[in-house]
Nucleic acid binder design. Structure first.
Lengths: 242, 242
DNA sequence: TATAAGCTATGACGCAGCGTGAGAGTCAAG
DNA sequence: CTTGACTCTCACGCTGCGTCATAGCTTATA
């Protein structure tokens, strides 16, 4: 029979936590002295070990209680569920990290938040469709974007902006320079991966659109600096040898 | 000038959240009517956008307030910090996922939690040292285990137990079977990766220890079933051609 | 113009998992 | 019997709002 402090030192949990678990009915002391002191035996310690195991896995205390109270409860299933939950959380975090890195790349100073409306990218795509009627590409895009969450969309948004910002930093060079060409390929690669197969024609069409003076031009110039959109267009032309 | 409901619909945040941010001083309405109604203009909306951005990145509201209130606050640095924090969280989650998968592999039913004491692995290593004096390997082990957190240790623990459980499932086969040999290599690979270079001699030594009747044998048999430790020993011997 | 519908406001509790005192009783040692 | 180390039971604090409850404001319609 051990006192709260002893149990605390053995297991690493705080005395307050033992009180808490007692109050919740999650872990009752084996005995309580007439003075009200909590005493725990080995069985209680084992139960505590199990509690700590599930707590490690971020199970809510209520669920831990349910699991431990009905041994016929399907623990394997609970474990499965928890694993998928943890994986979801991990994905979420990965998106956030990419998002944050993208923002860092753009530079917090020049952030234009109006460009962050979710669905901005979709709007771009709609414009692309209206202007050039790339129906095959548009269907690809739709298929890929259907399954995307708001969070993923935002992530892609900042990544795209980061690419334009890099274009902006290349403006002082010639639009025919190697660096500009490489950046065009970077853009193409990004679009290929996340949106649709980006053939020369599609890429050229995008370039025209970027420099067309619409919302596109505005947003790109906001991100990369005045004249960036036009520079991107020239770089695409030069890269494609037109 | 927009009312709370309009702002709510425009930005997706709840009215309650606007109240909350007002109370915190995080986002004050531009004007308040004599009836006490909150009204927001475009400047306030921009501020809200920024708040939502940082909130997305899981900044605490207090920090967001600090960041927005002092524009000379180093936002890039804050962003950096947040990124590393998010990465840490991600690593933590990855460990938990491995941990949970390991437990699943062992099977929740046969979990013996006494084997989960942190430092169990260290104890094993100490025994190995005492018995066989593999000082070079022990130093390697020490170097690798120094930087490990409790969490990572637990993760490795269950992974190791999972391997022994698989040995247990092979017991019906011959210890000279291909499967047993493959499992021995799996064990060796695991040890190589996480502990120390596991030469034939070291591996053999471990086998002797496993079957030696001590705590080792006990824990392995608990995990894989009666006779597993001996089976592992035989499999190692057969695999090494001794 | 009275009234209903729809919006808004201010509390204030709830949740999750304890941390952190405050104030008071208990136990073993000297 | 005193001291010091433990223990107990409240009970508020923290994070970021959700969710009533109760009440005042506005506007359109009858």
């Amino acid at each position: 029979m051990r006192t709260v402090k002893e149990v605390s030192q053995l297991t690493g949990v705080s005395v307050r936590t033992l009180h808490h678990y007692d109050a919740l009915g999650l872990l009752k002391p084996t005995k309580v002295t007439q003075a009200g002191y909590r005493l725990y035996d080995d069985t209680a310690l084992e139960r505590l070990q199990q509690i700590l195991l599930f707590r490690e896995l971020e199970f809510p205390l209520k669920e831990i209680k349910a699991i431990l109270e009905s041994p016929n409860f399907n623990r394997n299933q609970a474990l499965e569920q928890q694993i998928t939950l943890l994986k979801l959380k991990k994905e979420h975090l990965e998106n956030l990290i990419d998002f944050a890195c993208g923002i860092k790349a753009i530079g917090v100073r020049h952030l234009d938040f109006t460009a962050f409306d979710t669905g901005k990218i979709e709007e771009y795509a709609a414009q692309a469709k209206a202007s050039y009627g790339q129906t095959a590409e548009y269907r690809q895009f739709e298929a890929k974007s259907k399954g995307r969450t708001v969070e993923e969309t935002q992530k892609l948004n900042v990544q795209l902006m980061a690419i334009f910002k890099e274009f902006g930093e290349l403006r002082e060079l010639s639009s025919q320079s190697e660096e500009a060409g490489a950046q065009v390929e970077k853009l193409r690669g990004f679009l290929n991966e996340h949106f649709y197969t980006c053939s020369d024609n599609v890429l050229y069409g995008l370039g025209v659109m970027y420099a067309g003076g619409g919302e596109f031009t505005e947003n790109i110039d906001k991100t990369g600096g005045e004249g960036t959109a036009e520079f991107v267009y020239q770089a695409i032309k030069a890269h494609l040898g037109k």
